[in-house]
Amino acid sequence: MTLHEIRKLLDAEVLIGEDQLDMEVKTAFVADLMSDVLAFATAGSLLITGLTNPQVVRTADVLDIAAIIMGRGKRPSQETFQLAEEVNIPILTTKYILFEIAGRLYAKGIRGCIEKVGSK
């Protein structure tokens, strides 16, 4: 799916990355624990989270995450916003809860970046 389609599907607001909406993504990872994101998320995936601090962007940057989706209506702090602009990572925000975001994306063919821990 493209970020453009994802925005529509999740009724999301694009806060950063309006110019990157043609980007194609196939996989995603959902977590509020950045250490788990670091352990399991793969490059080019979506990061779906309820956290809003700059560490979300740092984590995404370290892993070459494609875009960040903030759920439950969460919005990035000022520092987070600035950092995302700097490293050029798109941020979308949606009022859907994380379960709904994951379910809606899965139904459209997006898959987890791994299925189970310990598998590849």
Partner: peptide, 13 residues
């Protein structure tokens, strides 16, 4: 913990 760390995964990772 608010930053999304401190769950005892750092050194393991």
């Amino acid at each position: 913990r608010e930053m999304g760390f401190g769950a005892g995964m750092g050194l393991c990772n």
